[in-house]
Design a protein around this nucleic acid. Sequence first.
DNA 1: AAACAAGTTTACGTTAACGTAAAGATGTCT
DNA 2: AGACATCTTTACGTTAACGTAAACTTGTTT
Lengths: 139, 139
Amino acid sequence: MSKTYSISELAAEFDVTTRSIRFYEDQELLRPARRGQTRIYSSQDRVRLKLTLRGKRLGLSLAEIRELFELWDETRRGSEKQLHLMLEKIGERRAALEQQMKDITMVQLELESAEIRCRQALEELNQKQTDEERARASG
Amino acid sequence: MSKTYSISELAAEFDVTTRSIRFYEDQELLRPARRGQTRIYSSQDRVRLKLTLRGKRLGLSLAEIRELFELWDETRRGSEKQLHLMLEKIGERRAALEQQMKDITMVQLELESAEIRCRQALEELNQKQTDEERARASG
DNA sequence: AAACAAGTTTACGTTAACGTAAAGATGTCT
DNA sequence: AGACATCTTTACGTTAACGTAAACTTGTTT
C-alpha cells in the first residue's frame, strides 16, 4: 500500500486549485484512480502534477506537456520510429531550454545593473540630505 | 540622425506580426514617433521590443513587462519611495529567475536521462536485429 | 490616372487556462 | 436524523494575447 492523496491535499501542497487539477485531468495530463466517484492520486500522479507545474513555470502549454508525457510513455514499448521522434522532441526542448538560460542570464545582468543604479540614486539622495542638515547646523 | 525602423522591418527582424507590435503599443510597451500617421521606431524602441520579447519568452505577461518599464523610467527622477519600490520589484524578479534556473536545471537533467534511455532502447533494438540476422545466416 | 505596396484604424473572433456558480452524491460527526 | 465537510459533474463566464477582415490613407510605380 503506497501512499495516496486526495485532490485537496495535492491542491494544498502545490498551491493550485482543485479546479486546475481536474482540468489537467480533462486535458489528459493526469489519470487518477477512483474509489466510487472520488479521485485517488498515487505518488506517480503526484510526480506528474509536479512535472506539469514545473513545465508551466517554464512557459510550456498544457498540450506540449501532454505531448512529452505521451512520448515518454511510448518510449517503453517504443518502436524505432517513435524512439527517434522522442529524441527529436527532446532535442527541441533542450534547445529551447538553452535559449531560456541565455535569456535569464541577460535579464539577470540587466536587473543587477538596475539594482546598482537604484542604490547609487539612493545614496545620492541621502548625501544631499546630510549636506542640507550640515548646512543648517552650521548656519 | 540615428537609425529608424518601419513596423514591418521590426516585424521581420524579430519574427512577430505587425499586429503584435501595434498591440504592444496599445498596451503601452512602445511609444514610437509618427510621421503623419505612420509609425517610426527608434533604436530605443527596438530595444524595448527586444526586451519585451525576451520577457515573454521567460513567461512574463505584457502587464508585468510594462510595470518593469515604468518603474525603470521612474528611476531617473525617482523619489526615495519609488526607488525602494523598484528595488523590491527587482528582488522579486531575481527570485523568480532563480526559481526558473532551478526548474531548467531539473528539466535538463530529466531530458538528459530520457535521451540516454532512448539511445539504450535503440541499441537494444539494433542488437536484437543483428542477432536475428546472424541466426538466419548460420541457420 | 490607375494600380500597387505599405501603412492605418476599427471591430469582431479565437484560444488557452482556468474562475465561478449551481446542484447533487458521499461519508462523518453530534 | 440532520448538519457539516469534501467530493462530484455540468456549464457558462472571463482574461490575455493576439488573428482576421474590412475599409481607408499615403506614397510610388507603370
